[in-house]
């Protein structure tokens, strides 16, 4: 079962990895920050070697977002995100794992979960059972 783990973050101090750049994290002692990085790298190694990691991308600062709307057949492009929110989507992971519990466990080990939040969303698939 595939899940997308959506990492949210505050756009105030955009930079990847987010967990080293958000203001709350910048206030932490260096050793704690280094620990987060080490645990994050360990997690990536683990889900790569287990064959659970399917893909991941970091997203650019929401400042670079362009939102496109088509109304009455006319496309209008505006600068800035569709939804104005304090937290914006910062990046995602796609994992293919045994259970929703395992997906949530991976999400909890993303250091970003400590600052804003990580959403775990099942990816819809083309398989179906007769009913």
């Amino acid at each position: 079962m595939k899940y997308m783990l959506l990492i949210y973050g505050n756009p105030e101090n955009w930079g990847h990895p987010m967990f080293l750049n958000v203001p709350e994290s910048l206030a932490l002692p260096a050793a704690e920050r280094a620990g987060m990085t080490a645990r994050f790298e360990e997690l990536i190694k683990e889900i790569t070697e287990s064959g659970e990691l399917v893909g991941a991308e970091p997203l650019a600062d929401p400042l670079n977002t362009r939102t496109v709307r088509v109304r009455g057949g006319v496309a209008a492009t505006t600068d800035g995100p569709f939804v104005e929110a304090k937290e914006q989507l910062a990046g995602y992971f796609v994992v293919d794992c045994e259970s929703p519990g395992r997906a949530a466990e991976i999400a909890a080990r993303l250091p970003d979960a400590r600052f804003a939040a990580v959403e775990v969303r099942p990816v819809m698939g083309p398989s179906g059972q007769e009913m």
């Binding site: 099942p122 819809m124 698939g125 083309p126 179906g128 059972q129 009913m131």
Partner: peptide
Amino acid sequence: TTSIPEQRYL
């Protein structure tokens, strides 16, 4: 459901 064909059917 997380299945597209099942969702269509339902």
